Simulated scan of single mutants.
Amino acid sequence: MSTGKSMEAALSELRRAMTGLESAVDARIDREREHGDADNEVRRVHADRARLAQELDQAEFRANRLEEVNREVSRRLVTAMETIRAVLDR
């Protein structure tokens, strides 16, 4: 094989290697970008979850408070009805 042909073969192999390297770098960049997108999505989901958990806690607190108020109103109504019956029975 002549020097010119071996040089051409070496250059051709180098071009193929460079193309493969560029493809590998592009693929790596794409994977990193997808990984970054996934990380951002996970952070967003965690933030949403924290917000929803806080809203749920507040709703549960309000529901418990409403139950307490409802029991108190019911107790007062029973007392008022008993008082009215007692007055009417006299």
Results as ranks from 00 to 15, higher is better:
82 E>F: 05
82 E>Q: 11
32 E>C: 05
37 D>I: 06
44 R>T: 09
67 E>G: 05
47 A>I: 15
30 D>K: 13
56 L>T: 13
24 A>W: 03
47 A>D: 11
84 I>F: 01
17 A>S: 12
61 F>W: 05
5 K>T: 04
71 R>Q: 01
15 R>T: 03
16 R>N: 10
67 E>F: 00
4 G>W: 01
15 R>N: 03
6 S>C: 00
57 D>C: 09
79 T>K: 11
33 R>W: 12
43 R>G: 11
32 E>F: 08
82 E>G: 04
63 A>L: 10
60 E>A: 06
59 A>V: 08
87 V>W: 11
2 S>Q: 10
15 R>K: 00
33 R>N: 14
86 A>E: 15
82 E>W: 04
34 E>T: 13
42 V>E: 14
31 R>S: 09
87 V>G: 04
45 V>C: 10
6 S>Y: 03
50 A>K: 13
16 R>S: 09
4 G>K: 06
46 H>R: 14
12 S>M: 00
35 H>L: 09
37 D>S: 11
9 A>C: 03
74 S>I: 05
83 T>Q: 15
12 S>W: 01
35 H>A: 10
81 M>S: 10
29 I>P: 01
22 E>F: 07
90 R>L: 06
54 Q>P: 00
18 M>T: 12
75 R>Q: 14
60 E>D: 09
30 D>E: 10
7 M>W: 12
18 M>P: 01
25 V>W: 02
32 E>A: 04
72 E>F: 00
90 R>S: 09
62 R>D: 05
33 R>V: 11
16 R>A: 14
9 A>Q: 05
64 N>D: 13
82 E>R: 11
18 M>Q: 07
